[in-house]
Amino acid sequence: MPDQPRFDPGSTVRVKSLTPPGHVRTPWFTRGKNGVVVQLLGTFGNPEDLAYGGNGEPRRPLYRVSFRQSALWPDYDGAETDTLVADIYEHWLEPEG
């Protein structure tokens, strides 16, 4: 039985600032950034395992995480309300402290 998903919608999270070699689905530009969990999408096979011949187990909770564009890019010149949503696996997220 997998663990309960760690984050509820509305939680503020930080994307881990890791830089491993190898296959990862967490975009570089989100790493180390704060965002808000919008939705739990379910649990999915871990791409970091599936990419190397594994079966993707244990499956990982996957969240839609919303970022303010102005938090991602210091020189962002669009509207202050503009946002970006990325799908991030739980093992790349930590509570924003």
């Binding site: 689905r25 967490t26 975009p27 999408l41 999915f44 791409p47 996957l62 564009q69 669009g78 509207a79 309300t81 503009d82 946002t83 970006l84 949503v85 990325a86 799908d87 991030i88 696996y89």
Partner: peptide, 15 residues
Amino acid sequence: PDHVEVRVHDSTADM
């Protein structure tokens, strides 16, 4: 216009 929020979705995973 600026009063419209632009919301970008980066399809990073299984969706």
